[in-house]
Design a protein around this nucleic acid. Sequence first.
DNA 1: GTTGCTTTGTGTCATTTTAACACTTTCAAA
DNA 2: TTTGAAAGTGTTAAAATGACACAAAGCAAC
Lengths: 249, 249
Amino acid sequence: MKQEIKKNAPQELNPNVSVDCVIFGFDFDKLNVLVIDRADGTSVPLALPGNLIYNHEHLDQAAIRVLEELTGLRNIYLEQIGAFGDPQRISKASDQSWLQKVRDQPEARVITVAYFSLVKMEDYIPQASSFAKSAAWVPLNDIHELAFDHLEILSAAKRQLKQMINIRPIGFNLLPEKFTLGQLHKLYEAILDKPMDKRNFRRKIQKLNLVKSLEEKQLGVPHKPSQLFMFDEKKYQNLMQTGINNFGF
Amino acid sequence: MKQEIKKNAPQELNPNVSVDCVIFGFDFDKLNVLVIDRADGTSVPLALPGNLIYNHEHLDQAAIRVLEELTGLRNIYLEQIGAFGDPQRISKASDQSWLQKVRDQPEARVITVAYFSLVKMEDYIPQASSFAKSAAWVPLNDIHELAFDHLEILSAAKRQLKQMINIRPIGFNLLPEKFTLGQLHKLYEAILDKPMDKRNFRRKIQKLNLVKSLEEKQLGVPHKPSQLFMFDEKKYQNLMQTGINNFGF
DNA sequence: GTTGCTTTGTGTCATTTTAACACTTTCAAA
DNA sequence: TTTGAAAGTGTTAAAATGACACAAAGCAAC
């Protein structure tokens, strides 16, 4: 399905353009990012999943393909962050071996287009997949070094995420189908990186009519069990369409 | 100054990456966009100023350079919109002659990175410059066709402008040093594309303390002359730094 | 110099939104 | 049965929003 070749264009990597993906996950406590370890064992900085694009493919499709090839994640909706074009952004890197495999001029110019997405961590457990060695969730706040200019990309992704959550109800992609308001609350605090008043938060969320309460409650927790909630799919689509209502916190 | 060659890298155009600029201007009534006419006389769609980048230059610098080369505009702060990567985005074009000058494979893949900026129209009068033939202001709402995928880029620029004006006081770049609140009001209506209540607008603007009233008044207008205003430069920088206050309308 | 045209400039009120704040309930584990 | 831990809930004061109408100032035309 993904390997279609359009026309008779040769399926060649374009040596000048790559894509990188910032995949956020939420473990009910803090944000995590999916990173890959390109070197086996050697101490090379971790990197965002990314690679060169093919000449025949759309940038957006390239991001989807590369993400799947490197992590196994499929059917992820990716949002573009932007292009990063420092001419030295690649040669800064400590490890260039993978690059030299695909290009003849080691100093060739590569610009990258970055994407980000939010996924449910439960949907993707690297340890259980065939990509165990290479992909892993790392807490966002523990990341202090990354390959190339990936730290800069990550920082732009955080900024954009913070901004976007006030415009669209994207945060919901990070939660399982059934969730508690406490979990949603923690998620917003993690993304906006600031504490928020519990009662005011709940009031605001409830007024949106975006979540509907289920008859179910949490089981097996060592404290008062929480009501479980789901999204109202229709309302959600509605909000995304009519666009950009004031969803701000 | 701009023609520095770093290291000994050859100053070569990169055939795979271009930049395009959406330059907005405001004529106190509506938004305008700076477009260029690449063909001399022949009826080829107008285009956004854009061209291929050099291998040695930063994307952001490329945008600044290309803009100056094509329009003469200098020292413009450009904000990135994003990358456009449809593999067919170029071959859709009706005129490819300029492309064929710089590349040997006519079907080569070009992705473009788009930028936008806001300028004071008074600062740039194409008719008076040496670029008279090629660059011109066109009212935003009169643009129904552009070369390549430039209409799509323009549409993204409009979206981003609309969004950004609620986050940062960027609109002020479009006005002369001294301006009236009525002009500012019209500008916001033009960007947000909706009528706004005069009194509520003025109240909100004044509360920001971003503008300070001068002792001067308009001269020579056939009606009650308006108070003139300027920005408070300090307050402005402050707002941009502490970032993203609620500036929404 | 009076009339008409055009844009400026101003205040109130009802409604909604926001921020700050503390205690009781429920369950599991010890 | 006690303890710990998170759930759940309401009020109030302050601020922001949206709707709304008329007098003032200048120029131009007569």
